[in-house]
Design a protein around this nucleic acid. Sequence first.
RNA 1: GGCCCUAUCGUCUAUCGGUUAGGACACAAGCUUUUCAAGCUUGGAAGCCGGGUUCGAUUCCCGGUAGGGUCACCA
Length: 430
Amino acid sequence: MTEKSNHKIVVRMAPSPTGNLHIGTARATLFNYLFAKKNGGKFILRIEDTDKERSKKEFEDNILSGLEWLGLTFDEFFRQSERTEIYVNYVKKMIEEGSAYISKEEPKEEGQRSEVVRFKNPNKKIVFNDLIRGEVSFDTTELGDFVIAKSPEEPLYHLAVVVDDLEMGVTHVLRGEDHISNTPRQILIQEAIEAPRPVYAHLPLILDSERKKLSKRKHGEVVWVDTYKKEGYLPEALLNYFALLGWNPGTDEEIFSLEKLVKAFDISKVHKGGAIFDVKKLRWVNKEHLKLNKEKIEEEIKNKLKDKFRRDIHPKLVEVVFERIEVISDIDKLTDSGELDYFFNTPEVDTLKLAWKNSTTDEAKRNLNDILPILDNFDAIKKLAEERGQGDVLWPLRFALSGRERSPDPFTLIEILGHEESQRRIKNVT
RNA sequence: GGCCCUAUCGUCUAUCGGUUAGGACACAAGCUUUUCAAGCUUGGAAGCCGGGUUCGAUUCCCGGUAGGGUCACCA
């Protein structure tokens, strides 16, 4: 009956398809994945869809495609809705053996049954060892005879989890800290059906800036992996950042590929306390990964600019954009805000702003006129700037070319715009 | 409220009793082709409180406080 396995270590991630892939789920999946890979173990993905009302296929699809995008592959896949007979057998067996019983109820809400299956609580103290937290103890008396199935044919969460972990040979349960209070219930059921107790490790939670659990109800799309995918974060950057939330390698190293994470990962270094999700640091991590993939990203920038401006794109402009982005969607922000327009269309230049600090517009124009003949000789321009003052020469030049108070330096601009266009723009203002 | 968990710069964190308490993000200043971006350098910034244990506690123990999680015929 038990599915035999050659793997010493078997872990599983068990999301329920009641919402899009949550970043907390993604991180817990990452930790399971790392733990499995690190130890040559098996990683199972199990969709916990026993709740027919709330479970949706679209959410399952979203979870699966999100995990695939992140590169978190699994060795085996199960769906609890396809395993009902297995649970039914256990429920029946438990009733026969007296560890569970059918209980008459008075329905308090719509849809509630007048008969449910309750677990016969032995009311004992449960002590379990948590890989992250050490010894944790609960008195289960306060749990009462909790419900394990709506009917023998409709198992509920705790029963299904324990049965599946047994059947699938799960040795280690790594999950969010929000499950820590579920553990005593599940251990009670394990003992009733004589299942071995897996090793537990309860991961710290990802918190919002208020130090509260990041929930789908309260935070909406910021908790979806999809959101970050759409904004153009790199999957490895996201993984890298998730790993750093509650774990560190014990060195100063912060940038990791998935492969390097597997090598460095050590569950005993996982923290106990929750960690606040900081988008700024995520963006920084993403930028570091952008640099690791510079060629690929520059290609993407080039194509995006080409689409937007329908013109050939100077490689130097690609560099300029690359320097200014942390995530891919920043490219759109740059193009849509008009910040790049002067590279493609002659800007309107406010000649009143042509002069640097205390110097006059006339001086600025004189300098520009003197630059005209040496436009292609950057060394000569620099020399002139040294003689007449850097700001007095370079500012008007840059301003004449861009029409903006902020832009790349004048030499970069000349390179991108080309000799003719640069000359034309200077003449326009002198 | 019961039960459980947690507690170092604003944030993520290092420290396995003795350190000028280190790094990163963010922030500020300076430098670079006196703007912007990037880069480099520098700076400010932390052990929740009170008791123990100890020659010595951020570190170990107890209490308090604060924060969080969880208390379904959801998962």
